[in-house]
C-alpha cells in the first residue's frame, strides 16, 4: 500500500532518464554528436556480425535471386538471362496452388499443435514431482537426435511387412491386411504422419521456450490471484498466459520459419510417392533440383517461398502483435 503512493513520482523520473547516467549535465554536451559518428564509433564492435550477415545471409540470397533469372543447363552451365521466365514456369505449374495450400496447412497445423501440446507439457514440467529432471531430459531427446534419424524411425515403423507400428495395428486387429497398410505409400496418410513427426520434433524447443517463460511468472502475482479467489483455470488464462506472451511469440515465430523450411521429414516420409499430391513448396524445390535438375526454376521457387515466409511472419506480427508489452 505504501508503494501506491510512491508510484506516480517513480515512473515520471524513470521515463525522463531511463538509464542512470553519470552527471545529468553531460547529456546536453553529448547531444550534438551526429548519428553517423555514433555509427562509426560502433562499427568496430558490430562489423564482425555485419560481415557474417552479409557473407552468410545476404550474399547467398542475392546469388539465389540472380540464379532465378538465368537459364542454367542440366549440367549447371549458365546460358544467359531469361528475365522472369522461371517465375512464370513456377506459377504456370498446374500443381502449384495445391502445393501452396498444402504448405499453409502444413505450417499452421504443425505450429498450432506443437504450441498447444507444449503449453500443456511445459505446465507439467513446471510442477515439482519426483523424477522431474529425468522427464525434462526425455523431452529434449527428439531435439538432440537428428531429424532424419527420428523420421526414419517412424518411416520404418510404418513400413508394411516389417514395420513395428503396422505390426502392432495388425496384431490388435485394427488393420485386416496381414502385411499392414502402406501409410507412407499414400499421399494423405503420408502427409498426416509427416505432421505427426514434425510436431514431435518441434516439441522440445517449444516446450523449453514456454517453460522458460513460465519461470518468469512472479510467484507473488500467482499468490495474489489465489488470494483474490481465482480458480486454476482463471489463473492460467488471466495471469499465466499474458506473462507467456513473449515466450509463445518467440516459439511461434521460430517454429513458423522452421516448419515452413523443413525438408527432411517430408522428403523421407513422402519421397517414394509419385506425382505431387503430398508435396509442399520445400519438397517441390527439392524435386526441381534433384529430379528435373532445373536449378534456375528451383531458385525462382526459393525466392517465392522466401517472400511467402516474410508475408506470413509480417501478418503474424501485425495481427497478434506478439512484441507488445503486457
Amino acid at each position: 500500500m505504501i508503494t501506491t503512493t510512491d508510484t506516480p513520482s517513480v515512473p515520471g523520473a524513470g521515463a525522463a532518464q531511463r538509464r542512470p547516467r553519470p552527471g545529468g549535465d553531460l547529456r546536453s554536451v553529448e547531444k550534438p554528436r551526429s548519428g553517423a559518428r555514433d555509427l562509426l564509433a560502433a562499427l568496430p564492435w558490430i562489423s564482425p556480425a555485419l560481415l557474417l550477415i552479409v557473407g552468410v545471409v545476404m550474399f547467398p540470397a542475392a546469388v539465389m535471386f540472380y540464379n532465378s533469372t538465368r537459364d542454367i543447363s542440366v549440367s549447371g552451365i549458365d546460358k544467359g538471362s531469361v528475365g522472369f521466365a522461371n517465375y512464370a514456369e513456377v506459377f504456370a505449374f498446374p500443381h502449384f496452388w495445391p502445393i501452396f495450400l498444402r504448405t499453409i496447412v502444413w505450417v499452421v497445423v504443425v505450429v498450432v499443435a506443437a504450441v498447444l501440446i507444449s503449453l500443456a507439457l511445459a505446465q507439467l514440467l513446471n510442477k515439482a514431482f519426483p523424477g522431474r529432471r529425468i522427464v525434462r531430459l526425455a523431452v529434449i531427446i527428439p531435439w538432440a537426435a537428428s531429424v532424419v534419424m527420428t523420421t526414419l524411425v517412424f518411416y520404418y515403423g510404418l513400413e508394411p511387412y516389417f514395420g513395428i507400428i503396422n505390426k502392432t495395428l495388425v496384431d490388435i486387429g485394427l488393420i485386416t491386411t496381414p502385411e499392414g497398410y502402406g501409410w507412407t505409400r499414400n499421399p494423405p496418410t503420408a502427409f498426416a504422419w509427416s505432421i505427426v513427426v514434425a510436431v514431435f520434433v518441434s516439441l522440445p524447443f517449444t516446450t523449453y521456450t514456454i517453460l522458460a517463460g513460465l519461470q518468469m511468472v512472479p510467484g507473488e502475482v500467482l499468490e495474489a490471484a489465489k488470494m483474490d479467489g481465482a480458480g486454476p483455470a482463471r489463473t492460467y488464462v488471466s495471469v499465466v498466459l499474458p506473462h507467456l506472451r513473449g515466450a509463445v511469440a518467440v516459439a511461434v515465430l521460430i517454429n513458423i520459419i522452421n516448419v515452413f523450411n523443413s525438408l527432411p521429414i517430408l522428403k523421407v516420409m513422402t519421397g517414394s510417392i509419385p506425382g505431387y499430391d503430398a508435396d509442399t513448396i520445400m519438397t517441390m524445390i527439392f524435386k526441381y533440383i534433384q529430379v528435373q535438375q532445373k536449378i534456375d526454376v528451383a531458385s525462382a521457387l526459393s525466392v517465392v517461398s522466401f517472400l511467402i515466409v516474410i508475408v506470413i511472419v509480417a501478418v503474424y506480427v501485425r495481427v497478434v502483435k506478439p512484441m507488445k508489452e503486457v
Partner: peptide, 21 residues
C-alpha cells in the same frame, strides 16, 4: 502385385522377396 506398387521403392521390396514373401 504387392499393395501400393506406385509408391514402392525397389530396394526395400527386394528385401521382402529375399524374406520369401
Amino acid at each position: 502385385t504387392q499393395a501400393d506398387p506406385g509408391s514402392t521403392d525397389r530396394s526395400p521390396l527386394m528385401d521382402i522377396f529375399v524374406q520369401g514373401k
